[in-house]
Amino acid sequence: MPALILRTLGLIGGMSAESTSVYYQTLNRLVRARLGGLHSAKLVLWSVDFAPIAALQAQGDWDATGAALAEVARRLEGAGAEAILICANTMHLNAPQVEAAISVPLIHIADATAAALQALGVTRALLLATRFTMEKPFYRERLEAAGLAVQTPDAAERDRLHAIIYDELVVGVINPRSRDAVLAMIAQGRAAGCDGIIFGCTEIGLLLDPADMPLPTVDTAIAHCQAAVDFALG
């Protein structure tokens, strides 16, 4: 029997720490489920301080965030990572800078999400995410290139959802009223013709369970982990 090859994954985490813990637990759970026994994922994790990153996001200084993430990616590759994951949807705005800084693959969260949506038969998805991810083209265009239509809540609801993410979920606060607000956004999206839902922020899965949603739902953190384990196991 050939020797098991389990590739090492490099995680750019801390954005936020709440969802990075989901990545760590999910990657190890998936590897154990696939290989059995005492197997776990081979990981190198660099967890950034999110406060300076969030301040740069608010200022619109994406060149600076890209430079910061590119440096982390180089260090992860130097530590033995054979592929890189940015453990956040919004920071995939800087995916080009990260890819340019490394010689190993970047496993892109939007590609993993598109594949998961297609597997569920979704054609028009409601994207629930930070304001940056919902309003800037980097994420929508990646999904549209895969043949998916994307819809977002209206402007006031986008502001509300952004606040829920940054003021509550990122710091581990789970508010039932916020859960109700997001469920109302989902109901409106369904009425507008959406046939699927994207938890397009890695923290939304802390607030809602995809299994409880009225439409097929992809939690991007989980889809990203599944794609990473596929790569790790070759």
Rank of each mutant, 00 (worst) to 15 (best):
G13T: 01
G121W: 14
V72I: 12
I84P: 00
W46G: 00
Q226S: 11
M213F: 07
D159K: 11
L128F: 14
N89L: 15
E135P: 04
T220A: 15
A187H: 13
A155R: 14
Y24M: 11
Q188W: 03
V229F: 00
L127W: 01
T220P: 03
G172M: 11
L143H: 05
V171R: 10
V218W: 07
G80P: 15
A184R: 11
D167A: 11
C194R: 02
G36Q: 08
G205H: 14
G78H: 05
R160Q: 14
A70W: 02
L169F: 11
V170Q: 13
D49S: 01
I204T: 06
I12E: 05
M134D: 03
C201M: 05
W62S: 01
A149T: 12
G193M: 14
L233M: 13
A221Q: 10
F199N: 08
I5L: 10
G80S: 15
V218G: 00
R34N: 02
A156T: 11
A184V: 00
C194N: 12
T130Q: 10
N28M: 00
A110K: 03
F199S: 11
A73G: 00
L117G: 06
I186Y: 04
S21A: 07
A101P: 01
V48S: 02
A58K: 06
I53Y: 04
A228E: 05
R32H: 09
G147V: 05
L30Y: 01
L27R: 09
E157T: 07
Q25I: 03
P105V: 02
